[in-house]
Design a protein around this nucleic acid. Structure first.
Lengths: 347, 347
DNA sequence: ACTCCATATGACAACGTTGTCATTTCATGG
DNA sequence: CCATGAAATGACAACGTTGTCATATGGAGT
């Protein structure tokens, strides 16, 4: 007269309650919940009705214990002060995880970091994640991808493509966007355009630099090494690079920074020198972070669809975890150029 | 000759492996792992050694299934465009969770939102969180706290204190910091000081307004309602409020905005009008977000120890979950005033 | 040495799923 | 009407911990 287990106590309904109500075995309920084949339509409906009636929610712990999967995806990221890029990463990752029924587990890391690989190993093993997403610059770092392969943890990177991409890789046309920005400046009459490189550990750095050179070449403008300075993607490094560039005997009339923070630094320094932007100096950034539209003057820049890229990465990862084809498009995501008031015609 | 279970397969070591190696029962291993009493020092050491030898990590799913706790803390937050406040919230929450052995589960919400309570209910029930952290402005919203009490989900709020605080509440001295900022302006010679209110749903809004009025009163300056404008904590609302204030017959010589984004809007608008900051207009913000130090001129503002506050909230919550006294200090956290170049003497 | 009690340890049954394999059901063709 | 095999369903044992309760151990007091 009674099931052997779960005498329908006051707690949350379990798979037994649903099975009893639908008049089937727990295994059939499990099949319905997990969208498995070989369930008669009629049966499926009865089970779904019982689930709805009882407001049944599968117990994640039990599921994880039995299936040996955690339904957790790890997001390993650089925890820099500037977080606007990561905000978009987070939005995309959360949206995709939610849609796929996965939980997102955050693992911030500080860079540079000698123990990086050890920390990632600990995280990957200890947290029992089913897979890991590696946005730039983490996915760019030597050894990270190899480590995850060694640990046999599925992963997806969101970072400019390497010659031989490993695992799932989502990327965008940084170089093209950079070229478009530089071309725009050239069309405004600029022919001495300063360029501030990004952090050398970010693969995007070389892509953006490449676009700059391509634009010069396409317009027949000679390359001047004095106009290219190193930077670190920080506001301060942008200030410093701007100071050097504007102290040249023939200073540039426009400066392209490899990201918005450095561009803000350039603009800040120009103001300190009493220069007008864009009257005396045009300034260009990259990323379209909030600071780009809120600083004065607002910044001409390029916007990456970061959330969508990360969503695509998570979706690909989940498909792989489910044993399906990862099935990622080979085409890069497209960056959009945003023209604002920080750029104008040659003085 | 063999245990009944777990013939030491190739997989991860389990509590059985540790028990065998240490020559004790699994229950004793469990006791050691969970820091329970009544384990002889000698025994504890043997178990710990075995754990270290095998690199044993308890299985979270099994633990959760057995103990009926998830070891997950939910963080419900407003997913605004501007994320610098949330970055600090996140840092604090992650740090505390990591230290306490809990996992953080993120639940972004968009505001305003008619289905807010339903969404929170779904999250709290479905995600099986052990507790929830509610930073401002979520913790300020009518009904949220009551809902969690009804659901019997432990929670901690990080938001200005109400007359009768419910659950764990962590807060800081917003009003005092605001008063200090206003006093500083008055000491610089300003006596017509504009004030831009924050979003009416944030409890911090009234606190910061209160500090402004207290400073006026303390210095014997009359209150002028025309100098106080509504805002929404956004850049745009700051611009608009500044436009109104600067169009007055006798415009203010300084404007206090209730946060940095609005202050950036004020500064932006001042530039559009051709005004010099701080020569013609002093501008003050609140929060010390990255934009405050990166905009031109850099912004005088007040900095809250948000990470520490959220850490304290999580720690209090965890203590409560463990059945200990929540044991929170009654003293508010202290905000620090940061003087930068956006403020100066009266023109 | 012996009792007694607190302390330390162990045996074993949950916990709620999924995986494996056995069994039933159903349509189909002979 | 029966044999056949595929589709549908079910029985039951994991999964790795913690909670409960029973039992062993050791030291203090006689």
């Amino acid at each position: 007269m009674a099931r052997r287990k779960r005498e329908s106590a006051g707690g949350k309904p379990t798979i037994f309650d649903v099975a009893q109500r639908a008049g089937v075995s727990i295994k059939t309920v499990s099949r319905v919940v997990n969208h498995e084949d070989n369930v008669r339509e009629n049966t499926r409906e009865r089970v779904l009705a019982a689930i709805a009636d009882l407001d049944y929610q599968p117990n994640a712990a039990a599921r994880g214990l039995s299936s040996k999967r955690s339904y957790v995806i790890g997001l390993i990221y650089e925890n820099a002060d500037e977080f606007s890029y990561m905000k978009h990463v987070l939005d995309g990752a959360l949206a995709a995880c939610e849609a796929q029924g996965y939980t997102l587990l955050l693992r911030p890391l500080t860079l540079p970091n000698d123990e990086l690989l050890a920390q990632i190993r600990t995280f990957a093993v200890q947290a029992r994640v089913d897979g890991v997403v590696l946005p730039a610059p983490i996915g760019d770092i030597d050894g990270v991808v190899d480590l995850l392969k060694e640990l046999d943890v599925p992963f997806a990177t969101v970072t400019p493509r390497t010659p031989k991409p490993e695992g799932i890789n989502v990327f965008c046309d940084d170089a093209q966007a950079s070229q478009d920005l530089a071309s725009y400046l050239i069309e405004q009459g600029h022919n001495r355009i300063g360029f501030i490189l990004g952090h050398p550990d970010h693969r995007a750095t070389e892509q953006r630099y490449k676009g700059y050179r391509q634009a010069l070449k396409a317009h027949g403008i000679g390359y001047d090494a004095a106009l290219v300075r190193k930077g670190l993607f920080t506001f301060e490094s942008g200030q410093q690079a701007a100071a050097k560039l504007l102290s040249l005997d023939t200073p540039p009339t426009a400066i392209m920074a490899s990201n918005d923070d450095m561009a803000a630094g350039v603009s800040f320094h120009a103001h300190e020198r009493g220069l007008d932007v864009p009257g005396d100096l045009s300034v260009v950034g990259f990323d379209d972070t909030p600071v780009a539209s809120h600083m004065w003057p607002p910044l001409t820049t390029a916007r990456q669809p970061i959330s969508s890229m990360v969503e695509a990465a998570v979706n690909g990862l989940v498909r792989q975890l489910r044993g399906e084809e990862a099935n990622l498009s080979e085409a890069p995501f497209h960056c959009e150029v945003v023209i604002r008031r920080s750029t104008g015609a040659t003085p």
